[in-house]
């Protein structure tokens, strides 16, 4: 939801004359919404500005994003950061994955979530008695 939120806010600022650049890691969400300028950091969600405790990478990332404010010539300009995530080739496949063996656990999480939020139960949810 973070990427959609900043994209919608950026669109409003742009429409009112304030140039913006979005810095984030969810390329599909930002481009689906449509923004003026997007600096894409292909990192796990949470650290779009760079590796934790790496101020040089963070400063370089932010500087490159800022330069896009001036260098973009039209809307929907996306630039990809040259930095790579740490040696961990599998992170892209793990996020929010749904494995068959997790089915019951995920349904239970969903049921608890609906109760906590006051939402109606799913249709095939077990009925609580007693």
């Amino acid at each position: 939801m973070c990427h959609q939120t900043v994209s919608l806010v950026a669109r409003h600022l742009e429409a009112n004359g304030i140039p913006t650049v979005v810095l984030g890691s969810a390329l599909d969400i930002v481009e689906h919404c449509g923004v003026a300028r997007f600096y894409f950091s292909d990192f796990p969600l949470g650290n779009p500005c760079g590796h934790p405790w790496n101020p040089d990478m963070q400063a370089a990332t932010v500087a490159a994003a800022l330069r896009l404010i001036e260098s973009a010539t039209g809307p929907r300009t996306t630039v990809r950061s040259p930095f790579e995530w740490k040696p961990d080739p599998d992170w892209r496949g793990r996020y929010n994955r749904v494995r068959p063996e997790d089915r019951e656990k995920l349904l239970a999480i969903g049921d608890a979530r609906r109760i906590a939020r006051g939402q109606p139960p799913r249709k095939e949810a077990p009925v609580r008695r007693g």
Binding site: Q4, S7, E14, I18, C33, A36, R76, L106, G110, R114
Partner: peptide
């Protein structure tokens, strides 16, 4: 997988304002 039936509709626009 959590049991929600209706998919979330993400914001989508064809155009993008540019200042």
């Amino acid at each position: 997988a959590l049991g929600y039936e209706d998919d979330y509709v993400w914001a989508h626009f064809e155009d993008a304002p540019f200042a």
